[in-house]
Computed example of a mutant assay.
Amino acid sequence: MNDLTPPNRCRIVLIAPPLATAEHVCAAFDGGDIASLILPDNGMDDATFQAFAEKIVPVAQAAGIAVVIAGDSRIAGRVHADGLHVETNRRELAETIERLADKMMIGAGGAKTRDEALELGEERPDYMFFGRFGYDNKPEPHSRNLSLGEWWAQMIQIPCIVMAGSDLASVKTVAATGAEFVALSSAVFADGLDPRAAVAAANVLLDETAPRFED
Rank of each mutant, 00 (worst) to 15 (best):
K138A: 15
H24I: 05
R114L: 09
A108E: 07
D45T: 01
D136Q: 00
H24S: 13
Q154R: 14
A35T: 03
D167R: 11
Q157L: 03
C26F: 03
I75L: 04
R212V: 11
L205V: 06
T177C: 07
R132K: 14
M128H: 02
V188T: 10
V174T: 05
T177D: 02
E214C: 00
R132S: 13
A101M: 01
A35F: 13
P125V: 07
S170G: 04
P6I: 12
A176Q: 15
D41N: 14
Q157Y: 06
I161E: 01
A101H: 15
E87C: 09
G131R: 10
R132P: 00
E214H: 00
G131M: 10
L39R: 11
A70E: 13
V171I: 05
L168D: 04
P58E: 12
I38K: 01
A108C: 09
D215R: 12
L168K: 04
E116K: 03
I34E: 09
R78H: 13
S143Y: 11
V199E: 03
T173P: 02
P40E: 12
I34V: 15
D191L: 14
V86R: 09
S185Y: 02
G32Y: 06
N145V: 00
V86W: 05
D102H: 13
A190F: 07
H24K: 14
E92G: 00
G83T: 08
E119N: 08
R91D: 14
P159A: 08
M163R: 06
G131T: 12
A22P: 09
F129G: 03
L4Q: 12
I158L: 05
F49S: 02
M44H: 08
R212Q: 12
A153L: 04
S170C: 09
E98G: 13
Q61T: 05
K112W: 01
E180P: 00
D30E: 15
V162T: 07
T21G: 15
I12N: 01
A176C: 04
V57K: 11
T21I: 04
T88E: 10
N203Q: 09
R212M: 11
A201C: 04
V182Q: 03
P195N: 11
F181Q: 12
G31T: 05
A190C: 06
